[in-house]
Design a protein around this nucleic acid. Structure first.
Lengths: 153, 153
DNA sequence: TTTGAAAATTCTTCGCT
DNA sequence: AGCGAAGAATTTTCAAA
């Protein structure tokens, strides 16, 4: 696969910010016509550089204001337990992000709920039901400082 | 502002997963015609429920494979220092997320770089230049288990 | 609020340069 | 690779129900 040129990265930068921009608008910024822009976008999709297009919602308005960062450590560290944990996490709708970490803490999760009580219920009835969880440490977000899906390219 | 009905939330659920779905496709799933779907989407945008539409890129392919979670605590906790920190963070392109936290740690950041060396340079030349940072604790992501912008609604 | 139709715009393909 | 034209599909508006 060929490396991306300046035109490709400009297209990606624009679409990361606003995927509703038309090929024509992007073409204008690049001083070329719409068809090559269109073809490049199609290629970038096909090659997997663009994974998907999504709408970003306002969490306050849809009543998911409480964001919690939860750090999880496992009791035993064998393959089966880790794979089981990863599988279970996929199915929890409240979990927006989950990373397997190097270091003391095994997993870091970002969870969105309506309120504190819903987070309590999430931990009580869903998260803590997963086998082999050792330490579980939750801290609440006071304020979102920055939140974007953009990569600097 | 009226609360959302079942049709609105269905539209939002669909657009969170794939914003390229046409009004017609969404209408089919709802057994109505395209125009009310179109009008509802416009209203949801206007009211702010939908903040924006974005393309999600593949971080491996664009060479931003290293994700780091960085926990920052400030030395002194006064308004000016906190506001300054929040402002500085906005301008750092490597930072995808930053939250002001309750508890021991003041801020949690998610940072994407090309490699470990680039993270080192980020900390050395950018993050640590911000005034009044006390403790700074970085841990690396071994594997992304789950990562979505969707909210469960 | 939904429908159905009509106009404007964008998407998509393709032959040519 | 990019251009420009042409047809298909979608977006967008709107009168009527």
């Amino acid at each position: 696969m060929e490396p991306l040129d300046e035109i490709d990265t400009t297209i990606l930068r624009i679409l990361q910010k606003d995927s509703k921009k038309t090929a024509k608008e992007i073409a204008n910024k690049l001083n070329i016509t719409a068809s090559p822009v269109y073809e490049r976008i199609r290629r970038l999709e096909k090659q997997g550089f663009i994974k998907k297009y999504v709408a970003i919602l306002d969490k306050k308005l849809i009543d998911r204001s409480v964001t919690t960062i939860c750090q999880v450590s496992m009791r035993y560290h064998n393959e089966a337990f880790i794979e089981n944990f990863e599988e279970q996490i996929q199915n929890l709708e409240e979990v927006q992000e989950c990373y397997h970490m190097a270091g003391e803490v095994d997993f870091i999760l970002k969870i969105n709920t309506k309120g504190l009580e819903d987070y309590h219920n999430f931990v009580k009835y869903k998260l803590s039901k997963i086998e082999n969880i050792g330490v579980l440490n939750s801290t609440f977000v006071l304020k979102d400082i920055k939140q974007t899906s953009e990569f600097y390219i």
